[in-house]
Nucleic acid binder design. Structure first.
Length: 317
DNA sequence: TGCCAGGCGGGGT
DNA sequence: ACCCCGCATGGC
């Protein structure tokens, strides 16, 4: 069964937007090939979108499925939200251009937006980052897609994977072991149960607050906040892990206990976006390497890096 | 080998 | 409100 194009649309971009960086950041090879971006839109049907640059300020989106009668308008709205092409970051840029830690990356990264994902997938991403290196976390997530997700064929693209649904996880708990999640596996199961019990619902993903998400055992403040950033573009409460806490305390010369407060003072309502951007700026280097780069003043990503970084992940996995 | 890491919860104070 | 520890797994 091959997914075929059932609709095509042009998307006008009105804000500062760098498609390639946005598509590349924290992505896998089965979703981005350097030119075209594949966005999974629905696991049931299944439906995906393929997006590429058409011209300056214009993207082309194709919607692909196995049947014709899908709700094109609904999916187009979803594609726009995922891409963030209506997200105005002017205020964020004003801070970025002047901030001590950020300013050197401004020219390189201006126009990058975070791609949004589902609440469920955002929680999986967060759980995989818990007490693990950046590489280990993304490898764990990749294994979940490959082992528990749905492998599908897409016309003029090839193979891709749809992330496993909560049901897929609960029906194949035995396969989680092969994903090498360690003790994080039980948190994945708890979150999957929360979705199948309707404690959490994808439809309400933009209504949730941190306090709603941390009710799930294994989901703490960091994971909840990261999920709100990635699923709802809620940036008000920044995810601050040990890595970022230390970096903030070094760069701004404050005790670690004041790191979050300092971050919010600098970034205001954009703190959550800045937290994720910091990992991109420093190529998600391990803490000691990140601090060495800060000391050298290398506070911008190496776009052509041969190592695995947030912006080159898609070349490796 | 034996540490330790982009968290977390449970148990202490 | 804090502090402290154990925890699966992989990397060095």
């Amino acid at each position: 069964m091959i997914l075929q194009t059932i609709a095509t649309a042009s998307l006008n971009v009105k804000v500062d937007y760098n498609f390639k960086l946005t598509a590349a950041a924290y992505n896998f090879s089965w979703y981005f090939n350097g030119k075209e971006l594949l966005i999974p839109l629905s696991c049931e049907e299944p439906v995906v979108a393929l997006v590429k640059e058409k011209s300056e300020k214009q993207l082309q989106a194709r919607i692909l499925s196995t049947r014709k009668g899908v709700d094109v308008d609904k999916y187009l709205a979803k594609i726009k939200f995922v891409l963030g092409i209506e997200e105005d970051l002017k205020e964020f840029y004003n801070i970025w251009a002047k901030d001590k830690l950020f300013r050197k990356s401004f020219r390189i990264l201006k126009g990058i937006h975070l791609r949004a994902t589902t609440l469920w997938n955002a929680l999986l991403i967060g759980i995989c980052q818990q007490n693990a290196s950046f590489k280990q976390g993304w490898r764990m997530l990749a294994m979940m897609y490959k082992i528990l997700g749905r492998k599908i064929m897409v016309e003029r693209w090839g193979t891709t994977y749809i992330p496993p649904s909560p049901k897929d996880i609960l029906n194949n708990v035995n396969l989680l072991e092969a994903c090498r999640l360690g003790y994080r596996a039980s948190t994945v199961v708890n979150v999957a149960k929360a979705f199948t019990n309707n404690v959490l619902s994808e439809d309400k993903s933009d209504e949730y607050l941190e306090e709603d998400l941390v009710k799930v055992k294994g989901v703490g403040s960091y994971t909840a906040r990261l999920a709100l950033v990635l699923a709802a573009r809620k940036y008000g409460q920044p995810p601050v892990d040990r890595w970022l806490k230390k970096i903030i305390s070094v760069v701004y010369k404050v005790p670690e206990r004041l790191a979050e407060e300092t971050w919010v003072k600098i970034w205001g309502k954009w703190g959550g976006l800045s937290s994720v951007m910091t990992t991109i700026i420093l190529d998600a280097e391990t803490l000691s390497n990140a601090l060495a780069r800060i000391a050298k003043g290398q506070t911008y990503p190496i776009l052509e890096s041969r190592e695995i970084t947030p912006l080159t992940l898609w070349k490796h996995i």
